[in-house]
Amino acid sequence: MATAPEIPAPPRRRPRPVSSGRLSAASGLGLGVGMLWLSLIVLLPIASIVVVALQSGFGPFREAVTDSEALDTIKLSVGAAVLVTVINAVLGTLVAWVLVRDSFPGKRIVEVIIDIPFALPTIVAGLVLISLYGPQSPFGIDLVGTRRGIFVALLFVTLPFVVRSVQPVLIDMERDVEEAAASLGASGFTIFRRIVLPTIAPAMLAGSALAFARALGEFGSVILISANLIGKTEVSSAYMLKLIEQNDTTGAAAVATLLLVVAVIVLVLLDSLQRLAARRD
């Protein structure tokens, strides 16, 4: 007991406890490998888009994005994405509400059907839509080569986003808040507007952001039904593909850069709205 323990000097490489959250040699190596991999497959390719777009100066870039065909496709893609996002934000929330609060025979089948656009390959979605709204439509509705066809395709592929982000929030929502509001005399609509909507707003916005990004860049489901008519139904992704196949790398990169910028602006906007909405409760 009396022998004073000799105080050891810490070893050159100090051990790290599991809980410390600091990197050890092994996890540091893992981080390095992971970052290298992500750089090779994500960061570098995305950087290459911007670099190629601007490598011959700002002039060619401006020329490429102000080309009338380019402008038409961008207006169409952004406009369609906005419209489709708004529609599915509303109807998606409604669907989520019915799935959480209502029960009826066949509800589980509806649940499975909602996931189909997620799992279905986009080109198959395109074929699916053209067989219903194409020249051989069983109802005689032919949307091939129309903008309405594009809207329907985009509605199809973006349906699950808002439904699947709002649903868990509705499930977790405390029912007694609504009951308290009702006991204070609020009507059903008032309760929805004042109590439910603020609660699910962040999830709605998050789902909308994903839906918008998806609609903006969508290619496979749109390409068959749009028929790719220049100036009418040509979407940006199809236009970029055409440019790269014609070896117009600067043009393709310029349009891609512009789309990236639009996507980033909208995502940041929706993200800050989401934070704002989340802070309110």
């Binding site: 888009i49 990004a213 992704s237 970029m240 790269i244 891609a256």
Partner: peptide
Amino acid sequence: VSISPIVVGIA
């Protein structure tokens, strides 16, 4: 998930 698959291919 936020960028067009066409952009991924071009990149």
